[in-house]
């Protein structure tokens, strides 16, 4: 701990906000700003990026002279399995089809908890897949292909 109190969380927040502002501002560079009659596509985003930077700076500055609060644990395992599940579903739903894509996505998500044993995760994924296929594909007739072109031979 340094001598002066500072809120590390807010320092990080301020810096990230400013970084986001710079990113949006940079993306706005190529856009036309326009005039007050015909505001260009860049007018509003530019103003907002500036505003976000300012707010980020204020958050950053106010973080000094204040006590830190505990940051807590980070759900690394959760992030490693939860976030890829929808991405995987998105990547495979057209190729593999609805049924296998959903099964695998549920199986991936099930790995996120240490409390769920692998076999139980598998059973859960099978149940979710069957139930969803019955509800959405057969029941509601959603126009998803159950098995996609990658599985045709």
């Amino acid at each position: 701990m340094s001598a002066k109190p500072k809120d590390r969380t807010d320092i990080a927040t301020g810096l990230l906000l400013m970084a986001a502002a710079v990113f949006f501002g940079w993306q706005t560079m190529g856009l036309e700003i326009g005039t007050s009659l015909r505001m260009g596509p860049g007018y509003f985003p530019m103003v907002l990026s500036g505003l976000l930077f300012l707010l980020g700076l204020l958050v950053f500055l106010k973080a000094f002279g204040r006590e830190d609060e505990p940051f807590g644990k980070v759900a690394w395992r959760g992030m490693a399995f939860i976030l890829p599940a929808p991405v995987f579903f998105g990547l495979t739903v057209r190729g593999l089809g609805f049924v296998p894509a959903l099964f695998l996505a549920a199986l991936i998500a099930a790995q996120a908890s240490t409390r769920l044993k692998p076999l139980h995760g598998l059973v859960l994924a099978v149940i979710v897949t069957i139930a969803s296929t019955l509800i959405f594909s057969y029941g509601l007739g959603l126009p998803f292909r159950r098995f996609g072109p990658w599985l045709q031979f």
Partner: peptide, 25 residues
């Protein structure tokens, strides 16, 4: 821990069904 794999499966379907856009996922 049983609920959230179900939640992930359902919201994948829900989000995808809005516009069949995989980028939404």
């Amino acid at each position: 821990y049983i609920l959230f794999p179900i939640i992930m499966a359902m919201c994948s379907i829900g989000v995808y069904s809005v516009a069949s856009n995989t980028f939404d996922l």
